[in-house]
Design a protein around this nucleic acid. Structure first.
Lengths: 205, 205
DNA sequence: TGTACATCAGTGAACGCGCGTTCACTGATGTAC
DNA sequence: TGTACATCAGTGAACGCGCGTTCACTGATGTAC
């Protein structure tokens, strides 16, 4: 059970394989995650991964689940420390972007919809569930009627889109082009959350 | 030069190959774009594409260029028809989302940074050049100082992020989950552009 | 403590497959005289 | 208008490669007595 440096048994290969896959995504993208590459990087033979994952797709799906968990941890932690609801909402947006900066591989995997378990029985973030329902109700009305920009649901959607777009821009190298460190993405996210919405939504000057 | 239905010479195979690649991206993603599949879909032998593209990468890069052109056409046309600068800016954002809805394959290819020619000598949208420079200047200052949410550059960045994030959400199936047609994305974009910014930036109610 | 055995994780060779790419070829087209 | 030739686009067989996956095996570990 202890990790000896030259053990025949790895000890925690399942986790090591996911680490390897994550590193490969960061370096060369999702397509470069092959079973051979993951095994080799983990110092293990090509057949070994199949003791832990049925096939390549299941390995990627496991990585996607890890990404969902990590993201949820971060945004929930950000909300937890906030003095007001609005501030919590903002901090959660900043944390979202920070996540993309710190873990570009996990963010990239999350963006691959085909890997995400859709409409599954798995646990979902309650805030997401509520928001999705509210959005569905809002959009379910007359499709011709214009949407009210001051509607809280639209406000929240605006914030989510803004953070999601910023995260994509950062991960895809927008700041590189501008010659600025990725870490500044967090500072930008902070400013963007404050640029949002009519005063009704904003709790300070 | 005319297209006879059973011609040995295709007539416009280069274009047909790009069409095929685009269709394959729409159906199965970028990874599914193989030279064999593109050739087969174009009704041509496996070696034929190499008369038009040096290798697979060059074909994908050509598709990426097509995407950049189509997107530029649309956003420029949207701006051209607008009565005011702000309204033009808004319409351009809506056109951006509309592009993602109508041409998900091209939008997806555009999002693959490795295919986009970076820092090339190629033509760039003047508005993008100006914005990028302004953003670089803004971020180049004291990295600790908070950014002013009312700064026009931040406002523009906010709008761009919002549209980019919405476009990604739509293409990745966010509206499917909510049970709403993709075409509603345009309506949402319209509302989102109006939810933005302090009154200084907004020219109506 | 020692022995026998069951269990399980990792080995490494092997397979079939589809891919990217090459190449000698052939059919169609355009042009010079 | 007709003939000869050069050019070029597409053919289709072939190649080497790396991938996903399987499988009989072997070494390590845990447990029963």
């Amino acid at each position: 059970m202890q990790s000896s440096s030259r053990a025949y048994h790895h000890g925690d290969l399942g986790r090591a394989l996911l680490d390897a896959a994550q590193a490969i995504v960061a370096e060369s993208g999702v397509d470069a995650v092959t079973m051979s590459a993951v095994a080799k990087r983990s110092g293990v033979s090509s057949g070994a991964p199949y003791r832990h994952f049925k096939d390549r797709f299941e390995l990627l799906r496991a990585l996607s689940e890890r990404a969902q968990e990590r993201l949820a941890e971060r945004t929930l932690a950000a909300v937890a420390g906030a003095p007001t609801a609005i501030e919590g909402f903002r901090r959660s947006g900043v944390a979202y972007v920070r996540f993309a900066i710190d873990e570009p591989a996990l963010f990239t995997v999350l963006s691959r919809g085909e890997l995400t378990v859709r409409d599954s029985d798995g646990p979902r973030n309650p805030a997401d569930v509520r928001f999705t329902a509210a959005l569905a109700e809002l959009l379910g009305g007359d499709p011709q009627a214009p949407l009210d920009p001051r509607d809280p649901v639209i406000q929240e959607l605006a914030a989510r889109c803004m953070m999601h777009g910023l995260a994509h821009f950062v991960v895809d190298g927008m700041l590189d082009v501008v010659g600025v460190a990725k870490e500044q993405g967090e500072r930008i996210a902070e400013a963007l959350t404050r640029s949002l919405g009519p005063p009704t939504m904003i709790d300070e000057g």
